[in-house]
Design a protein around this nucleic acid. Structure first.
Lengths: 302, 302
DNA sequence: TAACCTAGATGAGTTCAATTCATCTAGCGA
DNA sequence: TCGCTAGATGAATTGAACTCATCTAGGTTA
């Protein structure tokens, strides 16, 4: 069984030994010399022998004191270093943001220069992954989570909700880039699909879009065709669309810049509801103010 | 400037990390789990990040916690070892007694078996030296000091006062071992001298003894002869006397056993006052009870 | 050599950081 | 689904740490 003395007594001892003066130790510790004297006396009682020779002056360590001093000093040095290391950079440390790949690529990364302009002192580190990282384990500071509902296990804020509709390059369309009026006409073009990780039957896939659009427009024929081109990840489907390879059902949020620039267009007016983008973080996170700044910026940036 | 957190918080953290349980840490530290929780939270605030992941169970260290834990554990281990080493053996440690050489040889050492009989649990370590060892520096626990007056700088007790008179073996004397009546007759024998460290003009040397005895017995001739044989240390002079090489002015205390056994005799009745034997120790010495036992024993042992 | 100054000691009284208590929450297992 | 358990929260309490008043010893200076 490990037995430790009151640690305050070690603190007083070490400071007095370093300064070889109770008075100076007291100044360093922000107490009176008497407090130092009491603590050292306590430690001497525990050790059952003197650790300092007080008389005659000057103060000197006894043999036992000399043996103990470097052990305590080195221990405290290592504590101070480790604590400084644990808390260092937290203020200066980049805010680590984890986000689904598509959102990181199409929404976040293109807007980073605007973040840097607005918040030059808060560097961001972007961790693009479709995996859900454990924030409590410290793997990231803040997560952008794409979910149907507000996550309940951590602090969360809703930033956006998106909708899904057919998207392609203007050049792809035979009508000179104007929106298609009859949904059935979409079937003349290659349909690009991507997987949804959660296997939600209501996820806005082509199959779901077509089935739902048919209730509004009975002209859409029943078909086994669900897609012509399929990708595992959303970001790759978007890349294929942008390369003019077909039409995909895309999130209006993720491709908002492409829509605004005209690089991509809404191929048909009918849309399906998507999910929400939530900013998620550990409650009372030390970088809370940076997180709040990031949240506000996300809501306002165009 | 080195900056340390409240050490109690490190204590709680380390115990919780070792047990990977706040509850068990609390049991070890003898506090409630709440106290552990508060301390760890305080430390996390200082580090500006979590050190433990509480949810979901089981409790786990964060990355920062993992980095801090071995540093703190190792530091505390080294403290506990050093403190145990500083206090170990103090209770079991021999009482270190420093004494003038002559007293150690002729008085103390021959009586050690009696000490062992009476106090089997208190071993003695005898440091025979005519040097004055610094008790405050922990070089010895208790000193037998031979001085004219009670030492004032430390706790002291007078044990004996001695007197000095001519001493020789019975075989040395031409009259069959009977005491010499006329002091002048002593001059027919080799006079053995030893140095007094303190150069006291009233120290009981042959010169002083003869000068003082002459005021009582005018028959003692003026003489330049101060000694025939001289030694640096008292113990060597006594050894020469015991070997039948002459007569020395000796302390009745130091050679009390030799006088009692008849190995040495008082060569003449005239005596000079000596000094006192004082037992000296650091006030509030941890082995105070052993010191008191030693003091009592010295006074009573024959 | 005496007076003054300073650093550490002693012990009673005071203070505040550490701790407890009462209550709540979340998640784990039966 | 319910009961149990471990950790969290915050106000109230406690006791170790600290201060204050006074003393002592020794170091320096005039």
């Amino acid at each position: 069984m490990r037995k430790l003395p009151p640690l305050g007594s070690l603190r007083a001892f070490e400071a007095a030994a370093r300064h070889m003066s109770f008075r100076e130790a007291a100044i360093e510790l922000g107490v009176t010399p008497t407090a130092v004297s009491h603590q050292i006396r306590l430690l001497e009682q525990i050790c059952k022998q003197p650790l300092f020779r007080r008389r005659p002056r000057p103060l000197a360590l006894t043999r036992a004191g000399e043996r103990l001093f470097p052990v305590v000093r080195n221990g405290f040095d290592s504590f101070a270093t480790a604590i400084a290391s644990a808390s260092a950079g937290v203020g200066e440390r980049a805010l680590r943001v984890t986000s689904p790949n598509a959102f990181a690529s199409r929404w976040l990364v293109p807007r980073l220069p605007k973040w840097r302009d607005e918040h030059p002192k808060i560097p961001l580190e972007i961790i693009g992954t479709d995996e859900v990282l454990d924030l409590r384990a410290g793997n990231a500071d803040v997560a952008i989570r794409y979910a149907r509902r507000m996550p309940a296990d951590l602090a969360a804020q809703e930033i956006f909700r998106d909708i899904f509709f057919p998207v392609c390059t203007p050049e792809l369309l035979a009508n000179g880039g104007r929106q298609i009026e009859r949904a059935a006409n979409l079937l003349q073009y290659p349909l690009i699909h991507f997987d949804w990780l959660n296997r939600d039957p209501e996820a806005p896939t082509w199959a779901h879009w077509l089935a739902t659009a048919r209730s509004v427009d009975p002209d859409i024929p029943e078909t086994n065709k669900a897609w012509d081109l399929s990708f595992r990840e959303e970001i790759h489907a978007i890349d294929a669309v942008a390369a003019g390879q077909g039409i995909a059902i895309c999130s209006d949020v993720v491709i908002s810049r492409d829509l605004k620039s005209g690089a991509l267009i809404k191929a048909h007016t009918f849309s399906l509801p998507g999910y929400g983008f939530y900013l998620v973080f550990v409650p009372n996170h030390p970088q809370r103010s940076s997180i709040e700044a990031f949240s506000s910026w996300m809501r306002s940036v165009v």
